[in-house]
Design a protein around this nucleic acid. Structure first.
Lengths: 110, 110
DNA sequence: AACATACTTGGCTATTTAGCCAAATACCCA
DNA sequence: TGGGTATTTGGCTAAATAGCCAAGTATGTT
């Protein structure tokens, strides 16, 4: 694999990696539903330390998935790319396909 | 976040996490193009140790994304869920949207 | 049977990640 | 100005991940 090709997959992986955490998936879903949320609201729903939530938001923002806007004391985050929701359809597809047909293999749950 | 909801996002994250590595994205792309590949062929293209490639394949398989079939000495892997390719369109969208100086909310593709 | 090939797994190390607490920053209001 | 609120960042530890080499397993060949 040459370095140009490698760079392409690394760039893709950076975006996908940013989504690869349950809390961050929850955030994306929540923002899709509400349009935007401040950190404190997400923090309350998630039930973790605000510093932890802030770090998750930073990961998503750095990946180009979210954007933020400060208004007064609060920072509001929203999705920058609506198509990320397609991930979920696909992921659900993988999971259903897995539970249906993975009886005989050693794979266990997805 | 109640435990049922949490479990839902953990399940999703498991699938996405499995994709969150450049080598594994390359594998998915390659399998989409070729239909199936044996480990040795992928190993050669990737240029890493075969044990490393084998571990990546196991990650994808455990997530329900690939299936394998042993034929003789070789093990052939193929995609189990074609829609994973939609990830890429979306990911490219995020990347393009990121590199363009942020302006509009309209992200070209769905 | 012995040996070769294709792959997986054990064992290890270096790196990254997630989480919390505490401290710093930014903004608002009186 | 001082004090309070919302958020980010520093510092740390525990856990997960990726990589290699070496050893193990399974299958084919002679």
């Amino acid at each position: 694999m040459n370095s140009e090709l490698k760079a392409k997959y690394e760039a893709r992986a950076r975006v996908i990696k940013a989504m690869a955490h349950p809390t961050r998936l929850f955030i994306v879903d929540e923002l899709a539903a509400k349009g935007e949320c401040c950190v404190c609201e997400l923090t309350e729903k998630i039930g973790a330390d605000m510093s932890t939530v802030s770090r998750h938001l930073a990961v998503l923002k750095n990946a180009g998935i979210l954007e933020d806007e400060k208004r007064g004391l609060q920072v509001f985050y929203k999705l920058r790319v609506p198509c990320v929701l397609n991930f979920f359809d696909c992921v659900e597809g993988v999971m259903q396909c897995s539970t249906r047909s993975q009886r005989g293999t050693s794979a266990g749950r997805a």
